[in-house]
């Protein structure tokens, strides 16, 4: 049996699968298959052999404090600029000066592999690791949020910071189809993430996947068990990709590669979509959808400073728009396109 971890734009990783209680000691270590049903532009990414990301080395090594990673506001640009790939909502959000401050976004991703690829978020072409891309994207959407980098090769539990926490997961945990999530012998890392989503102690923004199937669906005989483990969890959000930011006059449709919500109402009710303008950035995949929602969660959290992660999650889900989508259907788009402006607005006022 093999198991693979897919970044929804890159790969690498090993983990263990547990076949039920009676087989708790019977675990397999799976080789990692770098798979990525990526998109053409990403397939053309530059691969370079380079040293590990200096920011992520703080998380590596497996020490007791390995999960205490970098906690800093990344200075991507001195003055945040609304980029063409962003929703206009983001600019409107910044104008009042609230940009995610007081919120911590932890990017659980690849910060140490030699795999890099090129793209441009509007600040010049760069060649970076997958985690560096998703981290940069989240920090551009919520420029005043504290950003932590957690290299997922460490497998240690993800630590939470004081205040509101948002976790970004732009990867999946794939194994042969047919198991129950409870049969999986999760590492401390994923176990902590699943626990946070279950208890509602962190907003978990999870990339839906790039196989053009329903979340949790079988592709190539395998399933994303991290998806399955997060279904029905209080503060988990699955994020699919649209081919653009939708408006009522220029509606968006699902990106051809994006996983959909499917028929499971528990998934539909926690599924959002956002525009991934790969034509502008050269970066495609739901890997780049999840950090947008992570950034939105941080901005909403910077306004509602006493809100719980579950409340922030529900606010984003309840305020999603369906009138900006081509042929809205819950089995495709779930709750609809995330709308930052509506998540910040009252339901009623008098």
């Amino acid at each position: 049996m093999s198991r693979r971890l897919r970044q929804f734009a890159i790969v690498h990783r090993s983990c263990r699968l547990n076949r039920g209680k009676n087989m708790s000691n019977n675990r397999w270590k799976f080789g990692i298959a770098a798979a990525l049903a990526l998109v053409p532009a990403s397939m053309a990414m530059a691969q370079e052999a380079v040293g590990p990301d200096p920011l992520s080395t703080l998380c590596a090594g497996g020490q007791a404090n390995a999960a205490i990673c970098l906690s800093a506001t990344l200075a991507t640009t001195t003055t945040p600029t609304v980029q063409s790939w962003m929703s206009p909502d983001v600019g409107a959000a910044w104008r009042a000066g609230y940009k995610g401050q007081g919120v911590t976004i932890t990017i659980v991703d690849d910060f140490s592999s030699t795999s890099k690829f090129s793209g441009n978020f509007g600040i010049g072409t760069q060649t970076q690791r997958h985690g560096e891309w998703t981290r940069e994207e989240a920090s551009m959407v919520a420029p005043l949020a504290a950003i932590r980098s957690k290299d997922f090769s460490t497998s240690s539990a993800v630590a939470l910071a004081p205040g509101l926490n948002v976790l970004n997961l732009s990867y999946g945990m794939y194994a042969k189809a047919g198991y129950s999530p409870s049969q999986i012998g999760w590492s401390a890392e994923e176990a902590s993430i699943i626990s946070y989503a279950t208890k509602g102690t962190a907003v978990v923004s999870k990339a839906a996947g790039n196989d053009a199937v329903a979340v949790g669906g079988v592709t190539g005989g395998q399933q994303d068990y991290l998806d399955l483990a997060l279904v029905g969890k209080a503060s988990a959000i699955f994020v699919g990709a649209l081919n653009s930011n939708g408006t009522t006059t220029n509606k968006a449709s699902m990106a051809w590669y994006s996983n959909t919500a499917g028929s499971n109402t528990a998934v539909q009710s926690h599924f959002l979509v956002v525009g991934v303008a790969g034509d502008k950035t050269g970066l495609y995949g739901t890997s780049f959808a999840a950090p947008i929602v992570a950034g939105y969660a941080a901005i909403v959290g910077s306004k509602f400073t006493k809100a719980t992660p579950t409340q922030i999650t529900n606010q984003l889900l309840n305020t999603a728009r369906t009138d900006t989508l081509v042929g809205y259907n819950a089995s495709v788009y779930g709750r609809g396109e995330a709308s930052l402006s509506r998540a910040l607005a009252p339901l009623a006022i008098r």
Binding site: A93, W94, A96, G97, Y98, K99, I299, S302, K303, F304, T305, S341, L344, A345, P346, I349
Partner: peptide, 13 residues
């Protein structure tokens, strides 16, 4: 309780 004009802004209520 909010400032009516700023209720939809990013500002905390």
């Amino acid at each position: 309780n909010v400032n009516c004009r700023l209720a939809a802004s990013e500002m905390a209520p």
